[in-house]
């Protein structure tokens, strides 16, 4: 049975990428603890609007943990602390204590400038994908799907790598603002599958070069990214990316 709790939300307000931001606070009283965290923010926004204030802006969409849109840094952890990988929208109020102050911040990284409040611009991820996160196949060119045999283990591992939702929690958690986990997940998926082999070398080089160009930091293997990844991507992907990248460079 749900019980009610009261919490204080301390949330980041910022008008634009160049503006100076600050924290605002709002008290939420008697929230049923089976409410999701984002629903609690909805309630807060309703209260703010009823006071004639502008609501707190944050990204969110599917609210079932798959679109990768939600991106809040809650009490020092991207997406908030949960036992297993979960996104902000899968966080429930039962994870908080009655009377707790919850600090909500945006992803902070040079690669993700703030648009407003806790909404950040993650266009850089699209640009990295455009640099090489695909197989060059035109519509209608493909052979029969079963013509390529893929061992189950390879397919399963590729699937795990492909689970990345592109939320950016890895970058947000990394003290180096590095996007390696994101990039390596895509590179790994395609490196594990025969379909991706033809372009593997080009892909690894192009995606890494784009990532560097866009101002993301380097990987120093702190593992903060895998600790917060809502889809449990692991740094073995990063090792694979390094392998692909080094062998591509050596082949040049």
């Amino acid at each position: 049975m749900a019980k009610n709790i009261s919490v204080t939300i301390k949330f980041w307000k910022q008008n634009g990428p160049k503006e100076k931001g600050h924290f605002d606070t709002h008290e939420l009283k008697n929230i049923p603890d089976d409410t999701s965290f984002l629903e609690a923010l909805d309630i807060m926004n309703e209260e703010l609007i009823s006071e004639g204030k502008e609501p707190f802006v944050f990204d969110h969409d599917c609210r079932e943990g798959i679109c990768g849109m939600c991106s809040l840094y809650i009490n020092g952890t991207p997406h908030g602390k949960t036992e297993r990988g979960a996104t902000t929208c899968q966080l429930y109020m039962r994870k908080f204590k009655d009377g707790e102050t919850i600090t909500v911040e945006p992803w902070r990284s040079a690669g993700f400038p703030v648009i407003k409040d806790c909404m950040v611009d993650r266009n850089a991820f699209d640009k990295i994908m455009q640099a090489g996160g695909y197989t060059t196949v035109r519509t209608g060119q493909a052979q029969d799907a079963n013509a390529i045999l893929i061992p189950k283990d390879d397919a399963d591992e590729a699937m795990d790598c492909a689970s990345c939702i592109g939320c950016g929690a890895c970058v947000a958690a990394c003290k180096n603002g590095s996007a390696m986990l994101f990039v390596s997940s895509k590179v790994s998926q395609l490196a594990l599958l025969p379909q991706g082999k033809a372009e593997a070398a080009r892909r690894a080089k192009a995606m890494v070069a784009k990532m560097d160009e866009l101002g993301f930091g380097n990987c120093t293997n702190t593992r903060a990214c895998e600790a917060v990844c809502p889809k449990c991507e692991t740094i073995s992907n990063i090792a694979r990316l390094n392998r692909e990248f080094i062998s591509a460079k050596l082949a040049d």
Binding site: T103, T222, E226
Partner: peptide, 27 residues
């Protein structure tokens, strides 16, 4: 480079996940 990639604003609250070794962040 990494310091630059981190951006200008810093988090007000941080918490270190168990997985992360102290040494790795303070090399």
């Amino acid at each position: 480079q990494n310091w630059k990639a981190r951006g200008t604003d810093r988090y007000a609250v941080t918490s270190k996940p168990k997985k992360v070794e102290w040494a790795s962040q303070n090399m």
